[in-house]
Write a protein that binds this DNA or RNA. Sequence first.
DNA 1: TTTTAAGAAGACAAGCCTATCCTTAATTGA
DNA 2: TCAATTAAGGATAGGCTTGTCTTCTTAAAA
Lengths: 145, 145
Amino acid sequence: MLFSTASGYALRALAAMPEDGTYSLAKDLASLLDLPGPYLAKILQSLAQEGILHSVRGPRGGFRLARPAHHITVGEVVAALEGIETMSGCVMGFARCDNEDNPCPLHKAWNEVKAHMDASMTHVTIRDLQILDMQQRREVAGSRH
Amino acid sequence: MLFSTASGYALRALAAMPEDGTYSLAKDLASLLDLPGPYLAKILQSLAQEGILHSVRGPRGGFRLARPAHHITVGEVVAALEGIETMSGCVMGFARCDNEDNPCPLHKAWNEVKAHMDASMTHVTIRDLQILDMQQRREVAGSRH
DNA sequence: TTTTAAGAAGACAAGCCTATCCTTAATTGA
DNA sequence: TCAATTAAGGATAGGCTTGTCTTCTTAAAA
């Protein structure tokens, strides 16, 4: 997996949250998606601090998307949890490796990879994941019959 | 960086080893490349166990490449230290994400990325890194004047 | 006002990676 | 044979990620 476990959990949880303004509970999302509850709660709290989610304490509280799902990109979520440095730097860890002077043998390939992923991550939004999420949950439900 | 620190160190050390059959000491490579000596020694020992290096104990011993540099691929080194699972699995950590049924929105992009990197890693060898290594050491030497 | 239902925040632990150190084993050379 | 040299192996420690647990705070509902 390219992303961290936390990012994967976050994307799945965001895709499962309704957009009707109602609040979802961390533990409900966790049991729905079969994720570790306390850990998911921490992740959702981080996303709330980053302005991706809105949270309310107390009865009938919980988490909801701070913006429409199609305005939250995958890259934004990953950056909020992992920082933006994830894919920067030389693939091989060479200190002196840049475009102009002495690129490492994997430099060109890695640059194309980065550009490709970067484009995907800024264009794919949580809304795109919602469809997938529905498909997956339908299949899981079907397999239980 | 895509690879682990250990893989980066390993590639740099392998690129710096002579191919004339003589043995290099872990601590010499470490000081030449400015890497943590004991840690590099562990890494080289792992590479010896994997058959990428040949090691001899005692005076005049050390490590040498077990095969010609152009027969050792970058992918082989990374796989020896990190396992082959590094780039397998869904990018987003979705359990049910495959080519046929329900690929995740990043699935296609990630597959192209994987194919690209995989091709590079099996075609680029330690010999390709030797040229880079010479360039980098020359520059470092020059910058000290 | 009291109770209850939530998130927020902190401590804590397990596991992995990075890194160091110490001891042991092997090999060479005197 | 003995001393020196080198890798091999194990123990240990710090940092980060994953994950759990407990306590505190907020806010709604009774």
